[in-house]
Amino acid sequence: MSFIFRTAQLAECADADRVLRAAFAPYLAKLGRKISADYYKWLPASIERGDVFVAEQGGQIVGVAATERREAELFLDRLAVDPSKQGTGLGRWVLQRLDEVARSRGDRTVSLVTAEMMDHLIRLYGSHGFAVVHRGLPDHGKDTHMRVHMAKAL
């Protein structure tokens, strides 16, 4: 695996959007939702803040991690792997790089939320050291599928 992990650049917003859409369309479909045209309208501002990271291979963006800095915590808002790279270990590799980012910033935990029905994601995060903190309905109210809140101490 020859990937490069780095902070996204604003000029790569369209590529990051493409990977996010390709990876999340099936996820949202299972939740009974679709990705609207403006679904990732927050992406440019997040990139400018330095909260979006990319995995690059051969000059192409193949993974995206959108994060949010919280007090002593890195919140993983989105982890997207291009469908052509899913199952290759890229997601695990990006999670390892995010741990390094969080540690270098002095964060004590990494946290995330995923849909309860996505048991393969819960297993993936669990195998990376995340534990279930609690379960509950989403705050956004766009669907009624239970969410699993997970965290990992660094």
Results as ranks from 00 to 15, higher is better:
Lys142Ala: 07
Thr114Met: 01
Ser127Pro: 06
Pro83Ser: 08
Gly87Arg: 13
Val110Ile: 15
Arg108Trp: 10
Gly106Tyr: 08
Phe3Gly: 04
Ala37Ser: 11
Leu154Ile: 11
Ile122Phe: 02
Ile35Val: 14
Asp51Gln: 13
Ser46Thr: 10
Thr67Gln: 00
Val54Ala: 11
Ala8Leu: 07
Gly141Ser: 05
Tyr40Ile: 08
Cys13Ala: 15
His149Cys: 13
Asp139Thr: 14
Val148Pro: 03
Met150Ile: 07
Glu56Ile: 06
Thr67Phe: 00
Ala66Trp: 10
Arg69Trp: 02
Ala25Met: 00
Val52Asp: 04
Gln57Ile: 12
Arg105Asn: 10
Arg18Glu: 14
Leu137Ile: 04
Gly89Leu: 09
Asp107Met: 07
Gln9Leu: 13
Gly89Ala: 08
Thr109Asp: 06
Ala72Ser: 14
Arg6Tyr: 02
Ile4Phe: 10
Val54Lys: 03
Leu98Tyr: 09
Phe24Thr: 05
Leu20Asp: 01
Leu137Gln: 00
Asp139Tyr: 10
Leu76Asn: 11
Asp17Pro: 06
Glu12Val: 02
Arg147Met: 15
Arg6His: 00
Asp119Asn: 13
Arg103Val: 12
Lys41Phe: 14
Gly87Ile: 12
Phe24Arg: 02
Glu100Trp: 10
Leu90His: 01
Asp77Trp: 09
Trp42Asp: 15
Pro138Leu: 06
Leu74Lys: 05
Ser127Tyr: 12
Gln57Phe: 10
His145Ala: 02
Leu28Trp: 13
Gly89Asn: 05
Ser36Gly: 15
Ala80Ile: 06
Asp51Gly: 08
Gly58Asn: 07
Arg105Ala: 11
Leu74Val: 07
Asp99His: 09
Leu28Arg: 01
Ala45Phe: 11
Leu137Lys: 00
Leu121Tyr: 13
Val101Thr: 05
Gly32Trp: 11
Thr67Trp: 01
Ser127Val: 08
Asp82Val: 08
Val133His: 13
Met150Leu: 13
His134Leu: 11
Arg18Pro: 08
Pro138Ala: 05
Ala37Ile: 05
Asp38Glu: 05
Arg92Phe: 07
Arg147Cys: 14
Pro83Asp: 08
Tyr40Asp: 01
Cys13Arg: 14
Tyr125Thr: 08
Pro138Arg: 06
Ser2Asp: 15
Phe130Cys: 10
Arg92Lys: 15
Lys30Phe: 12
Lys152Ile: 01
Val62Tyr: 13
Gly106Cys: 04
Ile47Lys: 02
Glu71Pro: 12
Leu28Cys: 04
Ile47Ala: 02
Phe53Val: 03
Ala22Ser: 06
Arg49Glu: 05
Leu137Thr: 02
Gly129Tyr: 07
Ala22Asn: 05
Gly91Asp: 01
Ser127Met: 14
Arg78Tyr: 15
Leu98Asn: 12
